[in-house]
Structures are given as C-alpha cells and as structure tokens.
C-alpha cells in the first residue's frame, strides 16, 4: 500500500514537474519563434503590430536586404576572432587565478579576493573615459587586440572557477601532492580535467558576452574593417530607428539581422551543453 502510494506520488510529481517546465519553455520559445516568423515575412507584413507565430506573407526579402547591404564575412570573421581568442584566454587566465585563490594557505588571499570582488562593482560608466585614455596610451585603439584584451579576466569568472576548484575532493589533490606534483601540474593535470562543467560555464558566458558586445567595440574601434558582426548589424538596424534618417529598416530586416547574429550562439551552445547534461545524467540516474 505504502509503496503504491509512493509510486503514485512519483508519477504525479513527474507530471506536474513536466507541465511546469513546459509552461516555462513555451514562454521562452515565443520570442525566438516570433523573430523567425517576422524575419521571413514580407516588408509590409512585418510592419504590422502584434506577435507573429507564422509569417503573414512568406518572403526572404529580410535576409536578402541584409545580404546585399552588408558584406557580412569580414565582421563575422572579426567577431569570431575576438570571441574565440578572447574566450580561450579568459578561461585560461581566470581558471589560473581561481586555482590560486582556492588555496587556503596562500598569504594575502583575502586581500586579493576582495580587490577582485570590488572590480565587479565598478559601473563601467564611471571608468569609461579613463579606460579609453589608457587604451589610447597603450596604442591599442582601433585594433582587434584591444577588444580581446578588454575583459581578459573578470571577477565573476575567477570567483566561479575558484568555487569549482574548491569543490574538488581533497583526497584527489592529496594523493597528487604526495607524488610531489607542483601547483602547475596539480592545476593542469588534475583540477582542469575535473572542472569541465565549470570551464564550460565560464566559457559559455564569456563567449555569449563577447559575441553580443556592442559598447566596447564602438568605443575602441573606428575603422569599419575592424567592426564586429553586432556592430555592423547594429549600424544597419539602428539607422532606421533614428529620427532624422530617411532610411527605414523594416522589422523583417531587423529580425533577420538578429537571427544571423544569434545563429552561431545557437550552434555553439549544444556542444557546451554536453558538459552539463552528461554530468547531471551520470550524477542522478546512475543506479
């Protein structure tokens, strides 16, 4: 009897759970689907108000317009370079710092951690002009390197990596230390392989952040040859939004631009996601 009740409870639990998730998911799909539908609408149909779940008049003209106006490859390449190199460097440096700060016996650890925490509270507007001046003095303005360098490390990622390293069981580290491994070896051979989910998280967040960045690029770059995809698309889209421009950008073109911009993220995501799901699956369902 008792067992049956438990079983019934489990079924109910699973059903309610599933329903809950479905409701949430549907609210998340709407914007994406709306964007897709509008991007495939004709110019006029896309201007009509309301949410579109299906193109009112199917047309490729949004994509065609973007394609014909924007030479998309160069900005795409720039975005790829900045995002990939920037993310790799970011993950490497932040995990190094995170590892060091995860060592309880490091003298000055608290101080350094506090200083890193403070950096996360500084509004960018406060230091925007000074950072610009510094970049100028370093001679980095107008280079892709400036974009890679900006945000090479962040307090957020360091803190996160530090926490992942802290959750590695002590016994693992102990045995390696007894073998006489130094910190670099411990970091590289033991901690990194054990923190794939953490690395994936940091990499994902950083990649998305860099891919979507506009302000940094606009600030540091003048030469259109170094524009990233977001900025190139934005220059196309925002012109139509400005009061005094006679150029109108219809919503299908805007949405087509947005689809092009997020497509790479949607493609990259499943590869990163593997690291979360696999672990959870192993963790909870292994019997």
């Amino acid at each position: 009897m008792n067992r049956r009740a438990t079983r019934l409870g489990n079924v109910l639990f699973i059903t309610v759970n599933l329903l809950f998730l479905l409701v949430i998911c549907s609210s998340m799909i709407i914007p994406l689907w709306n964007a897709v539908a509008v991007s495939f609408s004709s110019n006029l149909a896309s201007m009509q108000p309301g949410i579109q779940m299906w193109p009112r008049q199917f047309s490729f003209s949004g994509y065609k317009t973007i394609w014909s106006i924007l030479a998309i490859w160069k900005p795409f390449e720039n975005s790829a370079i900045v995002s990939v190199l920037g993310t790799l460097l970011h993950v490497f440096l932040c995990s190094l710092a995170g590892y060091a700060l995860a060592q309880f016996h490091l003298p000055g650890r608290r101080w350094i951690t506090s200083l890193i925490l403070i950096t996360m509270m500084i509004p960018f507007q406060a230091i925007m002009v000074p950072v610009y001046v510094t970049m100028q003095q370093l001679g980095l303005l107008n280079t892709l390197f400036a974009l890679i360098l900006a945000g090479t490390v962040s307090g957020f990622s360091i803190l996160l990596m530090r926490n992942f390293f802290l959750s590695i069981p002590g016994e693992v580290l102990e045995s390696a230390t007894i073998d006489g491994a130094g910190h670099f070896r411990l970091y590289w051979n033991i901690c990194i392989p054990l923190s794939k989910a953490g690395l994936a998280t940091v990499a994902l967040f950083e990649f998305v952040g860099r891919w979507n960045d506009i302000l940094t690029t606009v600030l540091f770059i003048n030469d259109p040859n170094n524009y990233t995809l977001q900025v190139a698309l934005n220059s196309l889209i925002s012109q139509g939004g400005s009061m005094s421009s006679g150029y109108i950008v219809t919503d299908n073109v805007k949405m087509a631009g947005i689809m092009i911009a997020i497509l790479p993220l949607l493609l990259v995501y499943p590869f990163v996601q593997k690291y979360f799901v696999k672990g959870i699956f192993v963790g909870s369902a292994k019997e």
Partner: peptide, 11 residues
C-alpha cells in the same frame, strides 16, 4: 559611430 554616439564622442 553606429551606436552610443555621445559616449564615443566624449571619450
């Protein structure tokens, strides 16, 4: 300047 014009000019 494709976005954030006043911020860019100020900087």
């Amino acid at each position: 300047v494709p976005a954030d014009y006043t911020q860019k000019v100020q900087s």
